[in-house]
Computed example of a mutant assay.
Amino acid sequence: MAAQQTGPVVVGVDGSESALDAVRWAAAEAASRNVPLRLVAVFTPLPAAPRHDMGLTAAYMDQVVTSLRGTLEVAAEVAAGAAPGVEIGTELRTGYPGQVLTDESRSAVLTVVGSRGLGGFTGLLVGSVAVTLAAHGESPVLVVRGDRAPDSGLPVLLGVDGSPAGEAAVGIAFEEASRRAVRLRALHAWSDVVVDPAVAVLVDHQAWETEERALLAERLAGWSGKYPDVEVDRVVVQDRPAHALVQGSADAGLVVVGSRGRGGLAGLVLGSVGQAVLRHAQCPVLVVRG
């Protein structure tokens, strides 16, 4: 059974279609957790301008603020339609979107954004705000990608790697699968690309795979007892983790990953696997910090 949670679900809105998709997901998440939904729009003022430009700057500020208030009203209507009965609050804040939403995440049970906002450049697969929040958010961060509905009935796909962030992701993934009443697909991908080709023929791949299966079983131990309602499929593949997770996202309702894996370098707050999944997954991605 899912744990009791407090704090709102926070979602960033900016008027884009991607953000409205995020609002629908956030509303469903708030309803399933029985917590309030907080819609946050961010006004980023112009930098200091020369005195003769101040009239234009003031007009710009008024126009943008009015537009953002309208954006919040539309988002609130969409949220109410997606999850009737959810308590909805709106907030217009000043600052930079990534920083503001990171600050909001400190008191949130979940922070949600679309994969791309109005500021996205053509060709980019994920926006800078989503990347920033996934790297620095203090709550789990849900980046809404693809066309999956929250109630798709598809399994939760979990990337398991044995890292501290990965351990936190395991617990969240079980919770998400329980809340959605779907299967959990626990995926552990390993690769022997680091082995010198000259000695590759000497490697006992069967023994290696047996060891990796034991690692997966160890990481899942105890969680099935806490969530007996969740059916678990254990999958071990010889592949690069990012590639395996992106491929697996094709028939998943949600992908859950840790913010950093075992191969993370000191100073990085979002590992290469997390970044790749954010950019290429075919369904929403939930990033969990350790």
Rank of each mutant, 00 (worst) to 15 (best):
V9I: 12
Y60V: 08
T66Q: 14
V160S: 00
R240T: 14
L68D: 11
G15Y: 06
L245E: 05
L202D: 13
A2L: 07
S249E: 06
S115M: 02
E176W: 00
P228K: 10
E87H: 13
H280N: 12
S163T: 09
G258E: 07
Q282N: 09
V203G: 06
A58H: 14
G70W: 11
L158F: 01
V13N: 00
G119E: 05
R180F: 00
W208R: 14
V100K: 06
L118M: 13
A26E: 03
V235H: 09
V10L: 01
R260D: 06
A130S: 15
V182P: 07
V230R: 11
P155F: 02
D103W: 08
L56D: 12
V199R: 10
V288Y: 08
R213Y: 03
R213E: 14
G7S: 09
W190Q: 01
T111R: 08
A82Y: 07
A252H: 02
A200G: 04
I172R: 14
S16K: 07
G162T: 13
A217L: 10
L46E: 13
H205C: 05
R289A: 04
L268C: 03
E218F: 04
V201T: 13
E176A: 12
L142V: 10
A76M: 02
L254G: 09
L216K: 10
L101N: 05
G253H: 08
I88H: 00
A186K: 07
A79Q: 02
A79V: 09
T66G: 12
V112H: 09
D251S: 13
S249C: 01
P241Y: 03
